[in-house]
């Protein structure tokens, strides 16, 4: 394994290992722009390392220089002179012939909630309040059962029987319905935040969250205050998630 002692081979091996790690080791797959950025950083780090002293730098350059000048490497040289232009030409073709892609929709997924909202003419605080139905522990099961019925009659079509955002209509809408099983949704939000989102729906979003795109209805037109708190209890119970608590208690 003497060739492994060559600085050049080592550098190439490190590059390849890093690429394979970034490409296949990150789940879900990282976008190409991110991988390109990471690879550029790795390349700079490798160059800095191999050029840190003169011997190392020479050892790194030797195979490159040999390929360029040594008569016995003539064949390799010819092959490279054919392959490299073709590869770069092909890359240029894929770039020039690329079909346009829809521009990305940038939006704030969890915008800051308001301090309070108007719910059917009544002011309801959002900041700092907890689910009022949780006070009476004996009624817990009853509320969850009622919430389940509300869910299946109203929410299932988008958010799915499994609460995973894969309902009947899910694949037709952008942005897609929230996946409640995902730890990045209800598990990191307070119940009052959910109350706001359910009551006011898509049209009640601030501008940075593109209210014109969201198909989430404003449920204050259809559900009572208690019904919204019940369906919130069902969401947490059915997914096994815990609501986030307010910090200043």
């Amino acid at each position: 394994m003497s060739f492994l002692r060559s600085r050049f081979v080592q550098a190439v091996v490190v590059l390849i290992v890093c690429f394979v790690l970034f490409r296949f080791g990150i789940q879900p797959p990282a976008p190409w722009s991110v991988i390109t950025l990471y690879m550029a950083i790795i390349l700079i780090a490798i160059l800095a390392f191999v050029s840190s002293d003169a011997d190392s730098w020479r050892s790194f350059l030797t195979p490159l220089r040999d390929t360029v000048v040594k008569p016995e490497r003539r064949l390799l040289r010819m092959v490279l002179m054919i392959v490299m232009p073709l590869l770069l030409g092909y890359y240029a073709y894929t770039q020039a012939a690329a079909k346009p892609q829809a521009p990305p929709e940038l939006r704030a997924v969890h915008p800051a909630p308001p301090a309070s909202i108007q719910f059917r003419g009544k002011e309801i605080n959002i900041q700092g309040i907890d689910n009022p139905l949780r006070k009476d522990q004996s009624a817990f099961k009853q509320h969850v059962a009622a919430g389940g019925e509300i869910y299946i009659r109203n929410c299932m079509y988008c958010h799915g029987d499994n609460l995973d955002g894969q309902g009947h209509f899910a694949h037709g809408f952008s942005p897609p319905p929230a996946n409640f099983v995902d730890p990045g949704t209800i598990a990191m939000l307070q119940e009052a935040y959910l109350f706001w989102r359910i009551a006011k729906g898509g049209p009640g979003l601030p501008k940075e969250s593109t209210p014109w795109n969201s198909v989430m209805p404003a449920w204050e037109d259809r559900l009572t205050e208690d019904q919204i708190w019940q369906v919130i209890m069902y969401l947490y119970d059915a997914t096994g998630q815990q609501p986030r608590r307010w910090e200043s208690h």
């Binding site: 232009p85 030409g89 240029a92 020039a96």
Partner: peptide
């Protein structure tokens, strides 16, 4: 898309 790739390939070859 038919002009750019050959130019890129030729430039690469010339540089090499």
């Amino acid at each position: 898309r038919f002009v750019v790739p050959p130019v890129v390939a030729l430039l690469t070859l010339a540089a090499m």
